Amino acid sequence: MRANTIALAGNPNTGKSTLFNTLTGLKQHTGNWPGKTVIHAEGSFEYNGEQYVLVDLPGTYSLFSNSTDEEVARDYIIFDQPDATIVVLDATSLERNLNLALQVLEMTNNVIICINLIDEAEKKGIRIDEKKLSRELGIPVVKISARNKKGIDQLLATLSDLVNGKIMTTPYRMTYSQEIEDAITKIESKLKVYFQDTYPSRWLALRLLDGDEELILKLQHHNNNRQLEVKTHDVPISVKS
């Protein structure tokens, strides 16, 4: 039976590594990402008779590929396409942490928001309505304390339901100005011809509009060098697919 691959994403200092250790215990190993000096941590665990491989992505504040850590995290979600991505947020700094979560929601549908450090938030009088947040974001939201192992069972049950298709998500996507939305639509139609549903076409269109040259090189590498031309604001961008 194939193991489910799960990406663990989050800002630095959200308790992501604590959750990783809680779930995987001693069944983990570290090394470097291929061609990078960034640490690659991977572990495994079993839940309800199913095997899971958990990949701890570098802690980042965004996924715009402005640093090696961001590039590694972004590329894993886009090109390795894990079965689910858990985004760990700090309950005491939820608004700041949501920036990364919204970026992940542009990239994949199978996302769980994991609000960690809930015990610390409660000490500060912070109350979080996870059900309302789940409705707003269109994905499951679970509150936990990884350090105290509070909420872990609910997280695992939610993860199992998500990867087995028992939870259908409708992730929130940012809406931009009409000019940008029109450009996105035009670029998406071109991208879908070449990539079908291999990659998230809306997210790719946004990155191409941003002039993300690094992403263009990655698409060349992953798609057998077949030429694709996309125009963004009448500026041709050459992408090989």
Rank of each mutant, 00 (worst) to 15 (best):
P140N: 07
R147P: 00
V163A: 02
R147M: 12
E136T: 15
Q178Y: 05
G125N: 12
I126Q: 08
Q154W: 03
A183F: 00
S177R: 06
A157Y: 04
L162K: 00
D182F: 01
T175I: 12
L117M: 15
L155T: 03
D161T: 05
Q178A: 11
D129F: 09
T158V: 05
A183P: 00
A121C: 11
K143H: 07
E136V: 13
K150I: 15
S177E: 05
L133Y: 06
M174K: 13
Q178R: 09
N164G: 06
I187D: 00
P140V: 06
A157V: 07
E179W: 00
I180Q: 07
S134V: 01
L133W: 05
E120G: 06
V141R: 04
I152E: 07
E120L: 13
R135K: 15
I128L: 13
K124Q: 15
K150Y: 11
L137S: 10
P171K: 05
R127D: 15
S160W: 05
L155V: 07
G138E: 06
T158P: 03
L133H: 04
I139P: 00
D119E: 14
T185F: 11
D119P: 03
L133K: 00
M168D: 15
N148T: 11
E120A: 14
T175A: 10
Q178G: 02
G138F: 07
S134Q: 11
E122N: 12
K143G: 14
V163C: 04
R147C: 07
T175P: 00
K143L: 14
K132C: 08
S177H: 01
K124R: 14
